[in-house]
Design a protein around this nucleic acid. Sequence first.
DNA 1: CAATTATAATTAGCCAGCTAATTATGTCAA
DNA 2: TTGACATAATTAGCTGGCTAATTATAATTG
Lengths: 193, 193
Amino acid sequence: MLQLRDLPDKSVLDKFSGRYPEADVSAVSVFLHLLRVATDLSAALDNCLSRHGLLQGRWWVLILLMREKNGISTPSALADRAGVSRATMTGLIDGLERNGLIARLFDTDDRRRVSIQLTAAGQAKLDEVMPDYYTRLRLCMESVTEAERDALSGILLKLDAGISTFTAAAGEGVDIHAAYRSDDQSSASFSST
Amino acid sequence: MLQLRDLPDKSVLDKFSGRYPEADVSAVSVFLHLLRVATDLSAALDNCLSRHGLLQGRWWVLILLMREKNGISTPSALADRAGVSRATMTGLIDGLERNGLIARLFDTDDRRRVSIQLTAAGQAKLDEVMPDYYTRLRLCMESVTEAERDALSGILLKLDAGISTFTAAAGEGVDIHAAYRSDDQSSASFSST
DNA sequence: CAATTATAATTAGCCAGCTAATTATGTCAA
DNA sequence: TTGACATAATTAGCTGGCTAATTATAATTG
């Protein structure tokens, strides 16, 4: 995700909404702010995990396994739950296996299937990382009251619902004049290199 | 950023907070929800931009240029404002130049410097994309009241402030038992493949 | 004024995602 | 029972970020 340093201030937003009357200034402002804070939080999480030699993807796989009875799942179920492609999950599992944090168990009944099991070392890694993560997160959110957390949850649910309209095809309630074009447009008379 | 399909439900959170008493359940819950909504919004934005042959990085560069007097800036200023490395900005500029949306202007006084200028085609591209983006965003946020937007802004500011404590070194208020290790841990007795 | 240091942009090469293709296996229906 | 299809995992190859190194130029200072 983009870093979005340098969010637009009032004067910039006014300039843009002057040219583009479709703009809802407060919506744009809070939307960009939300994206930026989320990016920063994600970077902070990366920072925390990297202290323990992990990245978000691998960490999340360990957590998903810990949720399971016996710490066992399959690559495809993990891919769906982590929201990554199966190909990516193969790579995550490769890395975790190399570190001994999970093990591949080959199914003898259906030989297409592989089970993934959290190892003792994997559980130990979680027991090292999670208290650090939880502690940092608790401190980070300390000043946000319980009421504010509830309010935030409610707003997030509304946004969740709104996302489908954001993604809707042109015409389905979204007025668009725009045509599609894949690459070369009007290839101006400048060009230097 | 991770997709975080399948957020933990109450029973999972209880299981984890049983093992890890450091966990603040409502903080974890709202934190993960925030990350997921932001990821989904970012994906929705990608979807919108791709209809016009753009990606977030290039789109943001066009916007930053449009903010400037005369639509002119430099690669390093753009990199700082977009929050990407200068190397990445070189690549973004290459792509935009190839499409004729921006032009490189070589400075004759200081020959290390290059200016980047939004072309007429670049401005036209913005005039095509921005109304679509603003319209979609307005619809997406329609159900979020002005009061809720204010509340959200306030909470985001608090989180902003909290992020530094999240990233703080171990010891600076973060109680950590964890040691660092870069790669090979206890390389268990399993391992197949 | 020559050598060092600083600055701007770019290039080279890494990494973690992705999609599409491949390999292996299982299932079902003519 | 075999041909068509379905499913699971992996591999191959692409992309857009990144850092570190390189190239070119300017500024500073002994």
